[in-house]
Simulated assay, not measured.
Amino acid sequence: MMRFQRPLSYALLAAPLVLAACSSSSDDKFPNNLEIRLQDAPGDFQAVVLDVQQIELHQKEEGNPDGWQLLPFQAQPINVLDYVNGRSALLVSTDFDPGTLKEIRLLLGPDSYIIGRDGQRYDLKTPSGQSSGIKLKLSKENLHQLSGTYQLLLDFDVAKSITERGNWKPGNDKKERYLLKPVIRVVAQNIKGGMRGTVAPAVARPQVLAIRSSITPADTFSTSADVAGAYQLGALPSGTYRVEFFPSASAPANQPSYKHVVRTGITVTNDQVTDLGTTSLQ
């Protein structure tokens, strides 16, 4: 995807997980409230379940092992495919000091797995996530406008995060079929532009790329249309975009082929969602 990134809708809908309660500060030392949310885009699996055990913040200079602070989070399995097209899971809500927020770290347990299109369960091996954790850096741009309640969105990229072992064969139980190498983008939720639309026919299940051509180098975001043909991209910076649709399925023999379609001159403005209507892929 060049640098594929899949954001969410500007309007985040909280999901009914067993979530962390807000911590309190009796002396108001930390006037800011931090919310950490997780979202994904439709992927080619029935389920992708992450065994999330801990979430931590790093509050000192990079490389300082003493800077990690454990956040109030109840360990739980999370099916990231439950949080697509405008839905997100609220993982953490807590008081914090924005001046010291450097990194986020997710520690995964041994029970992450996927349910494939064949209905079978396959364990996901994540060596780094189960040992040193998955570290996500926050840029200065994420931090300079913090006030009141501030949201960070963990944008999980299923397509880039799950890879199939080249030596796996059907019926081979001794080798795991899939590896999890998480690719997660941290999005500051003061970026609230977005776009949405549908494709026809829905069975084409295209990958959707939004390429911000108004900057150099261009910035690319991606998602996939769901089974109803709907797609939604959010947390998009303002600008002019080229949107490309790449069908992932082939048309039946008695129908016209599905086409790669390009739409240009799509404008995204902060605090607004641009509706592209229906795009025909035939």
Rank of each mutant, 00 (worst) to 15 (best):
R3L: 14
A11Q: 12
A11Y: 11
A11L: 10
A15F: 03
C22Q: 10
S25Y: 11
P31E: 10
P31A: 08
P31R: 01
L34W: 11
G43M: 05
F45S: 04
F45K: 02
Q54G: 01
I55R: 01
I55E: 03
G63K: 07
P65E: 09
W68R: 06
Q69T: 02
Q76R: 12
I78R: 05
Y83R: 09
Y83C: 14
R87Q: 11
R87P: 00
S88Q: 11
V92G: 05
D97I: 00
P98I: 02
P98F: 08
L101K: 00
L101S: 01
R105A: 12
R121P: 06
K125V: 06
Q130D: 07
S132T: 05
S139G: 14
K140D: 14
E141P: 00
Q145N: 11
G148L: 13
L153Q: 15
S161H: 05
T163E: 15
T163I: 08
K174I: 00
K174W: 10
K175N: 12
K175R: 14
E176R: 09
R177I: 00
L179C: 07
Q189T: 04
N190E: 15
K192C: 07
M195K: 08
R205E: 09
P217F: 13
D219T: 00
T220D: 10
T223Y: 05
A228L: 03
G229I: 04
A235C: 13
T240P: 08
F246M: 11
F246Q: 12
S248N: 06
P256C: 05
S257E: 15
V261E: 09
V261P: 10
G265V: 07
D271T: 11
T274D: 08
T274K: 13
T278Q: 13
L281R: 10
L281I: 05
